[in-house]
Simulated scan of single mutants.
Amino acid sequence: MTDAEPRAPRADAARNRNQLLEVATRVFESADSEPSMRAIAREAGVGIATLYRHFPTRESLVDAVYRDQVMRLTEGARELLAELPPPAALRRWTELFGSWIATKNGMLDTLLAMIESGEIAHAQTQTELLAAIDEILDAGRATGELRADVTAEDIAAGLIGIFTVARPPEHSARASRLLNIMLDGLRPTRTV
């Protein structure tokens, strides 16, 4: 290992970072406005110094949560397709998407500022998410279980609409109902 190569974090430090990331995601998801870093540390059961050691700024924490959520969505598409038929994989994926949307509630101001400044490449995220949706749609088209004329953009627009009018957790039942209606519309029509 050369001096220029960064050292890998110790296993316990990586575990602590991942725990902080999980807790921050949960806190952001349930918050109506941006929680303080102190509130996130308290919820994680650590001191504020520990949180700042892993995430020196609010922006670094928001960036980590955002990137983790996008990775879960993109990898989630493949993982769900490996274990479920395409329609069921898409339905489960929409729940992941709903969590991602809800998580943004607690970090919205910081996230918007980071997108505006170019710290987060929103266009790249959009491309990655549309590719994940396409992967599921392509699998469903191949099996004949999902309509061929629906695009990833159609699905994304529908999801944004659903989660705008029926935000979990307070409207989880309504969001679930609307998702089921949308997914029923994705089944190919059968001619008799």
Rank of each mutant, 00 (worst) to 15 (best):
A49I: 02
L84W: 02
A41E: 01
L61E: 09
Y52A: 00
S33A: 13
I120L: 15
D63N: 13
R91Q: 09
G47D: 03
Q126R: 14
I120G: 01
D138G: 13
R58Q: 10
Q69T: 04
T74C: 13
R26K: 08
M107C: 02
G45C: 13
V46Y: 06
E95T: 10
R38Q: 14
A139S: 11
A121F: 06
D138K: 09
A64D: 00
T25L: 07
A139G: 00
L61R: 01
A89E: 02
P35C: 07
V46H: 06
A131P: 08
E128H: 06
L112E: 15
F28L: 01
W100H: 05
W100N: 01
T127Y: 14
E79F: 02
L96R: 11
D109L: 12
D63L: 12
R67Y: 00
Y52C: 03
A123I: 09
E116L: 13
T50L: 12
G47T: 10
D134E: 11
V70M: 07
F28E: 13
E119A: 15
H54Y: 03
L73M: 01
T94G: 02
R78V: 11
A82M: 03
G45H: 10
L81M: 00
R42Q: 15
W100V: 05
R78C: 08
L51S: 07
R53K: 10
G76R: 03
A89T: 10
P85S: 10
L81F: 08
E128Q: 09
V46D: 01
P35T: 09
